[in-house]
Design a protein around this nucleic acid. Structure first.
Length: 214
DNA sequence: TTGTGTTTTATTGCCTCC
DNA sequence: GGAGGCAATAAAACACAA
């Protein structure tokens, strides 16, 4: 009776193996198998120790012992299987089945752990992204303030500061307005409909680069 | 007590390897 | 071709709320 709760501690997983797989497995990966009519466990036993053809739970001690062995090696050589079976008073087939099922649970657990790890990584990345986007907004604001300032100054002194550096290939006469954008576009060759996206991408890169440099 | 959900044990069918 | 592994699944055993 009480062994269930203890085993639960050992094996517990939020989803049963079959349901977890049906959730996780990509559709195409499922091999189609004919559904069969299960033959009822007959009186021929199967269980050497069993006798009646009923499903028998392993005792606590048996389960613990198998668990210990599983900790040492996940697969059994046939000699070891027979040895374990004799020691536990079980049918070698039962031992084999136990290991098979245990491997399935173990694999399931691995998948679950990996999923959780990736999920937390993903969450952390989302937070990071959010911070970076905030930073982009701030920088954009500063940029437009600077542009305003430049405009204001170049409005005062006619034809003075204009072009400021211009950058390679940007002819001083090519643009009558003195916005920052043409310089950025000239430098990174951004053009066409993805202008906005590309510009933002550039900013993000800048920020990330800064992050590395700092 | 019973209905329901979960876990464990066992079977089946397919696949791979030797 | 047989042994053994795996995925899918059935069904018994169990837990637990109502």
């Amino acid at each position: 009776m009480s062994n269930m709760s203890e085993e639960k501690m050992l094996f517990s997983s939020p989803l049963s193996s079959s349901s977890f797989y049906s959730l996780m497995a990509p559709e195409g990966e499922k091999r189609s198998r004919r559904r069969r009519k299960k033959v009822k466990a007959s009186d021929d036993g199967g269980g050497g120790s069993g006798g009646e053809g009923r499903k028998r739970r392993l005792t606590d001690a048996q389960a613990k012992f198998l668990e210990m062995n599983f900790g040492e090696e996940r697969k059994l050589e046939s000699g070891r299987k027979v040895q374990l079976a004799t020691e536990l008073g079980l049918d070698p087939k039962q031992v084999a089945v136990w290991f098979q099922n245990r491997r399935a649970r173990w694999k399931n657990k691995q998948l679950e752990d990996e999923y959780l790890k990736l999920k937390s990584l993903h969450d952390a990345n989302l937070v990071d992204k959010c911070h970076l986007e905030n930073e982009v907004l701030k920088l954009k604001k500063r940029l437009s303030e600077s542009e305003e300032e430049i405009k204001r100054l170049s409005g005062c002194s006619s034809g003075g500061v204009a072009g400021g550096g211009g950058g390679e290939g940007a002819s001083p006469s090519s643009s009558s307005t003195n916005t920052y954008q043409p310089a950025v576009l000239g430098e990174f060759g951004v053009e066409g409909e993805d202008l906005m996206y590309e510009t933002e991408y550039t900013f993000s890169n800048y920020i990330m680069d800064w992050g590395y440099l700092l």
